Amino acid sequence: MTGRGPEVVPGGAIDPVTTPVDHAEDSGEVSALTFDDGPSPNTTPALLDFLAEHDVKAVFCVIGRNVTAPGGAAILQRIVAEGHVLGNHSTSFADMGSWPASEVRADLIANLAIIREALGDVNQPVPFWRAPNGSWGATQRVAVELGMQPLAVVNTIDDWATQDVATLTSNLRAAMRPGEVVLLHDGGGDRAGTLAAVETVVMERLADGWGFAFPKGAGHRHP
């Protein structure tokens, strides 16, 4: 790959392409859960408790300034230790759609460094990239150059607009489609309603025989 620079360890995606991936590694009655905007001390630990209890794995697309906030590194360490996969979601919540490729690259590299420093592992896989606000611009191409697979903004539940539990539960039932990625948030504000919806709908799907997988392109992961 070009444009990465010899000092940057690639993210670890398998054969990344610029088209954002919207399907899980497996097909049929499976879902690929992805969580953006964390880690958050208010939501992520409780979410991890629930996922661990039911042996469900997910992708956590993390914001650098939340990793460096008090408690953020410890939560990130737990995410990785419990077998979840990481996505790069930029160092902040800035809209990058109009940024030149050089600025995008600098931010993505900076966030990789933040993640890896927090984990004490310069080789930590971060195989996914999702642009804040779904504003892609040059970010898809840059992410692929850095060994990260863009992760689609699809099957959202509008949990940035409301935290009403009934609404989000209904939205998640509709958004969790067979073999597809679903997008939720564990950070960026109050996510108690999101967490409640996840607990309800995931339990329903497990009872119905569904499984949970990573999105396509996750690559090799630490045990």
Rank of each mutant, 00 (worst) to 15 (best):
T2D: 15
T2V: 11
P6D: 10
P6M: 06
V9H: 09
V9N: 11
P10F: 05
G12K: 06
A13V: 11
P16A: 06
P20R: 02
V21D: 05
D22N: 13
H23D: 09
E25N: 07
S27W: 05
G28P: 07
G28T: 11
G28M: 06
E29N: 14
A32F: 03
A32D: 00
L33C: 00
T34E: 02
T34N: 00
T34S: 01
F35E: 02
D37M: 03
P39L: 05
P39Y: 00
S40C: 07
P41D: 09
P41N: 11
P41V: 14
N42M: 12
T43L: 10
T44G: 09
L47C: 10
L47M: 12
L48T: 09
L48N: 00
D49Q: 12
D49M: 13
F50V: 04
E53F: 08
H54F: 11
V56Q: 06
A58I: 02
A58P: 02
V59A: 05
V59H: 11
F60K: 04
I63F: 08
G64S: 13
T68Y: 11
T68G: 03
P70S: 00
P70L: 04
G71W: 01
G72P: 01
A74V: 11
R78Y: 03
I79R: 04
V80P: 09
H84T: 00
H84R: 07
H89Y: 12
T91E: 13
T91A: 12
A94E: 15
D95H: 14
A101L: 09
V104C: 06
D107F: 09
D107I: 09
D107T: 09
D107Q: 01
L108A: 03
I109R: 05
I109A: 04
A110E: 14
A113H: 11
I114Y: 00
I114A: 07
I115Y: 05
R116V: 13
A118S: 15
G120D: 15
D121Y: 13
D121T: 04
Q124D: 04
P125G: 06
P127V: 07
P127H: 04
W129V: 04
P132N: 07
P132F: 05
S135W: 07
A138C: 11
V142Y: 01
V144K: 10
V144Y: 10
E145Q: 15
G147W: 12
L151H: 01
A152E: 02
V153N: 14
N155G: 02
T156Q: 08
I157T: 11
I157S: 04
W160Q: 08
Q163N: 09
D164F: 01
V165I: 14
A166E: 12
S170Y: 03
R173M: 06
A174G: 11
A175Q: 02
M176C: 05
P178A: 03
G179P: 04
E180R: 15
E180Y: 12
D186K: 07
G187A: 07
L195C: 10
L195V: 13
L195A: 12
A196G: 15
A197L: 13
V198T: 04
V201T: 13
A207T: 14
A207I: 06
D208L: 14
G209M: 05
G211D: 15
G211T: 15
G211Y: 05
F212A: 12
F212S: 08
P215Y: 03
K216M: 08
G217T: 01
G217V: 08
G219N: 14
H220G: 12
H222Q: 13
P223G: 08
